[in-house]
Write a protein that binds this DNA or RNA. Structure first.
Lengths: 252, 252
DNA sequence: AAGTGGTCTAGACCACACC
DNA sequence: GTGTGGTCTAGACCACTTA
């Protein structure tokens, strides 16, 4: 009969649904090392018997473990604990304003310059638009507690986002504005360290040559470049934090 | 009858399974902006009718979209396209050897020093062990094409990984050895920029003050600290690359 | 009260890999 | 062949939320 899942209801078991409990059970065994990499975990029909549930239920759990990168499955052979491949991490990059406010500092923003121009050779190394395509080039400063916090050097492809030409970036953050107008897009981040050149150092109010964290982000939507932004953070003021939890991040 | 999924077999449709095609359909609508944030997507029973399939099938798809952070669901109300929150990215941090080899350069490794000591105050700021707990402190150099590539400054908690005392880190990479002995663990990464101090600069063969990317990683397993490592990369030689694909990374 | 999603069942057919 | 996972069905009961 449908619905009379014995294991699930006769034992309330902390409110979690059956598949969540099975998932937690298996994850615990894998992450604790009780089942080390390469170990063959029970077949679906064995888990069905152990938990007294339908095959669909254990299948759902195992599919989730595959998606999380914890196991791999081979027909006829079974399911196996994966070896964690390399190190992956989920890096959260909040927008600069939220970042400053979360540090309990006051936030300020200034548009230093905003110009419209046709893509130069240098621009095209940063953002993959056609030669001569119209771009909006912005330079802004983010300020925390009155001190320069980060310098933002951004290009926006006007072919992809023509409305940007009419936006007022003196009052609205380019990143926020873009998220509102082009909500979902792919992104690639490049993080490196570089010494501040004379102009950058002046704008950040740090000595020339100060080690800076440079975050470059290029985003596009279905192949169309949207924007390329370079953020300069004086190294001692900024840290990027990333957390890695095996069950969340796939090691694939 | 079970198995006679009309949509799936009468139209082979590029080999993908039914739920994969539904998933791709919905994702395309969301990511293209056709369904913008806040939009209510069809109810499960409507999707059942549209695709001529069982409710379980569309439910599976929608659950996947929730997990991917693309939609949120509310009982009685429906399912809604989420607004992408902040910027998240999946950062892959390969082990240094793989990193060098993937650049097509030859890889070399040297153990500069390896000492066993009781945790000092400074150590305990980096790795949360008890005062006086035994630590293994390693200093190693990674070499690419004969040039110093990165400096690795690592602490290993011997209380958590006693076998590390007997490992030969002159020949075996500490990171690789640890992955083999403590396969799954949580990690936290801190990425910043700093100028190379005199000793670091000498070991990396760069001028003092060179902007370096400093990656600090602390890992533990069920609360037990395992290792803390600090990797110094001369800024101009190293970039961390992260990609963000909405359907992969949850914006939660 | 009604309608949504959340979960689960007990089957089924199929593809694939190994024997 | 045989046994595994991959997928799908046509129901079902329940919890929750909104009207």
């Amino acid at each position: 009969m449908a619905g009379d899942d014995e294991g699930a209801k006769t034992e309330p078991a902390h409110d979690r649904s059956l598949h969540q409990r099975i998932r937690a059970d298996l994850e615990e065994r894998i992450l604790s090392g009780a089942w080390s990499p390469g170990h063959r975990i029970p077949f679906e029909h064995e888990l069905m018997a152990q938990y007294g549930c339908a095959r669909m239920t254990v299948n759902r759990v195992l599919s989730g473990l595959v998606e999380a990168g914890l196991i791999e499955r081979r027909r006829r052979a079974g399911s196996f604990v994966r070896r964690p491949a390399g190190q992956s991490a989920v890096l959260r990059i909040p927008d600069v304003k939220a970042e400053v406010l979360s540090r309990g500092e006051t936030y300020g923003y200034e548009l230093i310059s905003g110009t419209r121009r046709k893509a130069t050779r240098d621009d095209r190394a940063r953002i993959a638009v056609a030669a001569g395509a119209p771009l909006l080039a912005l330079l802004c400063r983010h300020v925390a507690d009155g001190r320069p916090y980060a310098l933002e050097d951004r290009l926006i492809a006007l072919d992809s986002v023509p409305e940007a030409a009419d936006a007022d970036f003196a009052t609205e953050l380019p990143g926020t504005w873009l998220l509102g107008h082009v909500p979902w897009h792919e992104a690639e981040h490049n993080i490196s360290a570089a010494p501040a050149d004379a102009r950058t150092a002046a704008r950040l109010d740090v000595p020339v040559g100060t080690a800076c964290l440079v975050m470059e982000r290029r985003t596009w939507r279905s192949g169309q470049p949207i924007t390329a932004v370079r953020l300069w953070y004086p190294g001692d003021r900024q840290k990027l934090v990333a957390r890695f939890t095996p069950s969340t991040a796939a090691g694939r």
